[in-house]
Amino acid sequence: MSVENAPVVDVDEAAIPVEKKMYYRFESNDKKEFRVSELAIQQSETLNRLVEAMGYTSEDVENKPAIAIENIDGKTLKLVFQWCEHHKGEAIPVDDGSVPKIVEIPEFDAKLMDIDNGLLFKLIWAADYLNIVQLLNVSCKKVANMAQGKTPAQLRRVYLLPSDEEDEAAKRAAQEAQDPRAREVEEEFEERKRQGGNSFF
């Protein structure tokens, strides 16, 4: 099944079969709504537990407000649900943590993830948040593949790794942004030291 033909749809785009199979409604943080089959939801441990806990009937699904997913935007959530619909019913892999991991990226997934790295980052974040094991596997594999054939210097650039000095500078900047008074106190302290004072107080 191609990415384009995946059954996830925005709620206002098409008529949705609601008999027999239950389709849940979810809303992204930018108010995009999606209908997702019960079977597809099982790919996400987080959502599966959520809908089980809610115990919705078919009527509830239609009549109650869509379930809000507040920290994922519509563009990302669409990819997530497309993936879940395509892989619905598949066994969820058990990760024993060992290496080397052997994960092949299926053609569908490769096409789905033919996106810019900003969106890929959001997709991984969403897969982690929603606990979708295999989507996390394939998306992380794609990130790992970026290291192929790279020199050490290129590796640093590929994974945007700052030096210790850059990290320190960023940390200082973040602290100052959080608490401008801290910088003022520090400057005052330095000024008193210059004037020969032994104690700040």
Partner: peptide, 9 residues
Amino acid sequence: ESFPILRLP
């Protein structure tokens, strides 16, 4: 291409 690995969960 670049990807901020340190910002991942």
